[in-house]
């Protein structure tokens, strides 16, 4: 009988031997989805977030980029949480996830206050572009 679910694993479980060069290492990483892949993903999202902060003019979009950075961190935390769950047989396994929840909470608080400032600012200056916000007072 055909088991649809076994085809893909077979395809993906092609192990490379002795990862010595960069290419091999990359290949090995790609075919074994482990914590490293999560970390790379998280790193990429982080970098994208940083790029957003650096290049955008709209304060709100900058805020969103910061949320993206925090989200990248969260991926890290959750991945490590799972990793430790398996490594330590369940001891302290949920701390990463709990920390993630705290990060989300703090992100929410940050967004609330930040957006409050944006609204207050917009009411005075009618703009949300950072390059027009260059004075400490108005």
């Amino acid at each position: 009988m055909i088991n649809l679910f076994n085809i893909i694993p077979i395809l993906l479980q092609a192990q490379t031997v002795s990862p010595s060069g960069v290419k091999e290492r990359l290949l090995e990483g790609i075919f074994n989805v482990n914590i490293n892949n999560f970390l790379v993903l998280s790193g990429l999202l982080f970098v994208i977030g940083v790029a957003g902060v650096l290049t955008r003019r709209n304060v709100i979009v900058i805020f969103m980029s910061i949320e993206l950075i925090l989200n990248a961190v969260n991926i890290n935390l959750v991945a490590f949480s799972r990793y430790w769950f398996l490594q330590s047989e369940g001891k302290n396994a949920y701390m990463g996830e709990i920390f993630t929840i705290f990060v989300i909470v703090v992100a929410a608080a940050e967004a609330v206050v930040g957006l409050g400032i944006v609204i207050a600012f917009y009411r005075n200056k009618e703009t949300v572009a950072v390059d027009e916000i260059d004075l400490m007072k108005w």
Partner: peptide, 27 residues
């Protein structure tokens, strides 16, 4: 921690979606 099979496929799907949309987001 190893994801194999459909889980790995899902991982790549979601990861690509996340990264692509993040790039779209900042642009």
């Amino acid at each position: 921690m190893k994801l194999v099979g459909l889980e790995a496929v899902l991982f790549y799907l979601l990861a690509v979606v996340a990264i692509l949309f993040a790039i779209f987001m900042i642009t």
